[in-house]
Amino acid sequence: MGVMRMGYAHVRVTDMAEAKDHYATTMGLYETRSDVSADGNQRVFYKGWDEWDHHSVVLEEGGVGVVKYGWKVEYESDIDDIERKARDFGLTVERMSAGENPEIGDGIRFTTPSEHVFEVYHQATAIGTEVGTHNPDAFPRHLVGVGVPALDHSLITCEDPALMQSMLERVFGFYATERVQTSLDDDAHLIATWMTSNNQIHQLACLEGPQAKLHHFAFRLGDWNEVGRAADLMAMDDVPIDVGPTRHGITRGQTVYFFDPSGSRNEVFAGGYLAYRDRPVSVWTPEQLGKGIFYHARELNDRFTTVLT
């Protein structure tokens, strides 16, 4: 089936000690490895309690913003298939070998039209979820902080969302679940698109803005109560909340946006309806965009489009 999910988000942090405090103590991720990159930067690898692969978040010290995303495919042969499609699309693809990313197998790497680095791989060292697979309990008893189960999705900015949409459709086999466009006309300008490969409401969203930038990456939560509790913990830990708890009109997800200690926006995200390839795409137009983004306040703040890392 090709791409199954965003396997990892690799981001930069300005101060590793503060970042670890945030991702381990407040968010409750499990550290699976810490090392020094070939460039001499300190790195820490994390997974959520309900993830089985070695890591889903990589922090690298030095600077801010996103280094790259990893996309896990179902079959080894999907890598070749995506490589061919990426070349057909006009992208420059390079091979990456097992171990270039610790605990990640062979794959390919390319830079998207949005100037983000994507890696595609099939094999990752299996660690197992924190509840196991044999008569598993509902959750681990001793979760730390928010205790996020898993990485969910990301929103990036790019100069040409329509081009990113067509790349994601043609190279990854993604489809759009929701869009923001200037009007309902056929020749309307695409402002943003929410894309997925399966029933998850979105794995990657692309919003018009500067190239190569990160808007946020999000962790999954179960429901409204967990989103509210996450916000309480952010207050206790003095994490700056950007917006929320509220709901997105787009995706119907329940959310808190907040900033990690390097100023990268994170999100906790619950809900979102089931996506299907044959479900008609929801379309939002600018006069209701405030409601689309923040369903209750119905107002877009400056920060939503200007604060990027």
């Binding site: 900033f259 990690d260 100023g263 990268s264 920060r303 990027l308």
Partner: peptide
């Protein structure tokens, strides 16, 4: 103050 972003040194706003 209007120019408030991440409050954590990352966005430059």
């Amino acid at each position: 103050v209007r120019q408030v972003g991440c409050r954590r040194g990352g966005c430059g706003i």
